[in-house]
Simulated assay, not measured.
Amino acid sequence: MSTTPEARLKDLGITLPTPAAPVANYVACVQTGNLLVVSGQLPLADGKLFATGKLGDAVAVDTAVEAARYSMINLIAQVKAAVGDLSRVKRVVRLGGFIACTPEFTTHASVMNGASDLAVDVFGDAGRHARSTVGVPSLPLDAPVEVEGLFEIG
């Protein structure tokens, strides 16, 4: 297994995209001390939403898991843009997941595993994190998933 996050991304066949610019009055990242807070990222793939809609309706769980993975890829791209070298990430402290879903949908955690699993694949043990996953009635641009993160930087 490769030893750096960048090498692990390469092994996984992932090329980080250009980070998405904020679309409103906020910034993509804020660093305070050794903590980097990254604003919520949508599941963009090649600059377009990977999927739209809600879980429990038009979006299947496996599609949403992949959407969460794309959100995490975009989160990592924001981290790299903010700190330069992903080896500076000492810990993925927390991920927050928002899942657009119907009131009957209850398997939010399995969707968020798309992001969590990638965090561990890229950062190894430092990718193990605390997490919240919340069902919401809608997300920007009708995205099915949004993921935000908190990272310890060295």
Rank of each mutant, 00 (worst) to 15 (best):
Ile99Gly: 03
Ser116Lys: 14
Thr107Phe: 08
Pro103Phe: 13
Ile99Val: 15
Cys101Met: 15
Thr102Ser: 09
Asp121Lys: 13
Thr106Lys: 12
Ser116Ile: 15
Asn113Val: 05
Gly114Phe: 04
Ser116Gly: 12
Phe105Leu: 03
Asp121Tyr: 06
Asp121Gly: 03
Asn113Gln: 12
Glu104Met: 13
Ser110Arg: 10
Gly114Thr: 05
Ala109Phe: 10
Val111Met: 01
Ala119Lys: 01
Arg128Met: 15
Ser116Thr: 15
Asp121Met: 11
Thr102Glu: 04
Gly97Phe: 05
His108Lys: 07
Ala109Ser: 14
Gly127Cys: 06
Ala100Asn: 11
Ala126Leu: 07
Asp125Asn: 15
Asn113Ala: 08
Phe105Met: 03
Ala109Glu: 15
Pro103Lys: 09
Asp125Trp: 11
Asp121Leu: 10
Val122Met: 07
Ala119Gln: 00
Ala109Thr: 11
Asp125Phe: 13
Phe98Ile: 02
Gly114Leu: 09
Ala100Arg: 08
His129Pro: 01
Ser110Cys: 00
Leu118Asn: 06
Glu104Val: 09
Gly124Ile: 01
Ala100Val: 12
Ala100Tyr: 09
Gly114Trp: 04
Phe98His: 11
Asp121Glu: 15
Gly97Gln: 05
Phe98Gln: 10
Asp117Gly: 14
Thr107Ala: 13
Ser116Glu: 11
Ser116Met: 11
Val120Lys: 15
Ala109Cys: 05
Phe105Gly: 01
Ala109Arg: 11
Pro103Ile: 08
Val120Ile: 14
Met112Trp: 02
Phe105Thr: 04
Met112Ser: 03
Gly97Thr: 10
Gly114Cys: 04
Thr106Leu: 13
Ala100Pro: 07
Ala109Lys: 11
Gly124Met: 06
Ala109Asp: 13
Val111Asn: 00
Phe123Pro: 05
Val111Phe: 00
Ala126Lys: 12
Gly127Leu: 08
Phe105Ala: 01
Phe98Thr: 02
